[in-house]
């Protein structure tokens, strides 16, 4: 199983009661964001994580420019660098050279450095967008459930419970495997990306939904909401002006912690052959391809594995930092 969203429960305890503290701090005249930023600034490890995340995002965005600089395109073949009998790169360490910084792929001789850069695009894209999907659905439904209560709450809560108990990976693989090759004007890899984003996001929303619901539930009864209500504020006003600002902190924490999990899920799906389609580069797909050569060309396996590791680690470090910064109790 890919790392399920267990981080959440840590976070749950951490962000369970942010609102009152937010209110307290207001008395001191500093916004929650300001406090959080001050704390985050002191957290060196988190800052390093954040820097790596930023770097990765930039690398993903500017991958074409960087590969143009190194002169290696991700789908350009160099069969002359491959031993035809064994399909593995000539030369030591998977063909690492000045020209091919991380060596070349077996069989085709494509530049691994270029493919890793392009693979970052897939990972980051799916990681972010699916987290956003989860946040949108989770916030809307969680708020509805918490604010209106009653049968709506019961229904949404049951759906969330049920989704949490769903064999998710199994469902995601099944769904992707029956998707047609073209959908909504997209083809091939485009469809896979879209489906992955939607499906991973969909299975992620209950985690957000639960927290939001809990928050709203506790906030709903607080005096200042009561006050707003008695002053004749409409539901919409209360929801958007009074409740949402208090949800920003827990949602931010969740989202940062959800992105690495989603990146792992994307890699796992590509590893299992239901991710993006070749020749599109993806770290998981590279790993799955590399398994055939783990003895004859181990570098080909290690490089994408380490890429996944660094990325996920950076996001986790940064996410931990954000959580600690937003955690008013400061237990950590």
């Amino acid at each position: 199983m890919t790392a399920p969203l267990h981080e959440e429960s840590t976070a749950k305890s951490a962000v369970a009661e942010p609102a009152p503290s937010g209110a307290e701090k207001k008395i001191e005249g500093r916004s929650l964001g300001r406090i959080a930023w001050d704390r985050l600034k002191r957290d060196k490890v988190a800052l390093i994580g954040g820097a790596v995340v930023l770097l990765l995002v930039l690398v993903a965005i500017f991958a074409p420019a960087i590969t143009a600089l190194t002169g290696q395109m991700p789908n350009q073949r160099h069969e002359d660098l491959i031993d035809p009998l064994f399909s593995t790169p000539k030369g030591a360490l998977g063909g690492i050279s000045g020209e091919h910084l991380l060596g070349v792929e077996p069989v085709s001789g494509r530049d691994i450095f270029a493919r890793i850069l392009y693979g970052a695009r897939v990972s980051i894209l799916v990681g972010f967008l699916s987290a956003i999907v989860a946040v949108i659905i989770g916030t809307i439904l969680g708020t509805l459930a918490g604010y209106f209560g009653g049968w709506l709450d019961a229904l949404i809560s049951r759906v969330m419970d049920m989704l949490l108990a769903f064999p998710q990976l199994l469902f995601i693989i099944s769904l992707i495997s029956v998707m047609p090759n073209s959908l909504l004007g997209l083809t091939g890899t485009g469809v896979r990306l879209l489906v992955m984003i939607l499906v991973i996001g969909f299975f992620g929303w209950p985690y957000i939904g639960r927290i939001v619901r809990g928050q709203v539930l506790s906030l709903r009864e607080r005096e200042y909401i009561e006050a707003a209500r008695s002053l004749g504020a409409g539901r919409r006003y209360i929801l958007s002006k009074e409740l949402l600002p208090n949800l920003v902190a827990p949602i931010t924490v969740y989202m940062t912690l959800m992105i690495p999990t989603n990146i792992l899920t994307e890699a796992a799906l590509s590893f299992l052959g239901v991710g993006v389609k070749p020749p599109t580069a993806s770290w998981g797909a590279m790993l799955s391809d590399a398994v055939q050569y783990y003895e004859s060309d181990p570098m080909y396996m290690i490089i994408p594995g380490v890429a996944i590791f660094i990325t996920v680690l950076a996001f986790n470090l940064f996410g931990d930092g954000v959580r600690d910064a937003l955690d008013p109790k400061g237990t950590r």
Binding site: M1, A268, L287, V291, Y294, G305, F309, L313, L317
Partner: peptide, 18 residues
Amino acid sequence: ALAGVSLPVYFTGLILLT
């Protein structure tokens, strides 16, 4: 622990196997 949650289980597995 942080390393543990950041490594894909199949990658860990492959390295251990090797």
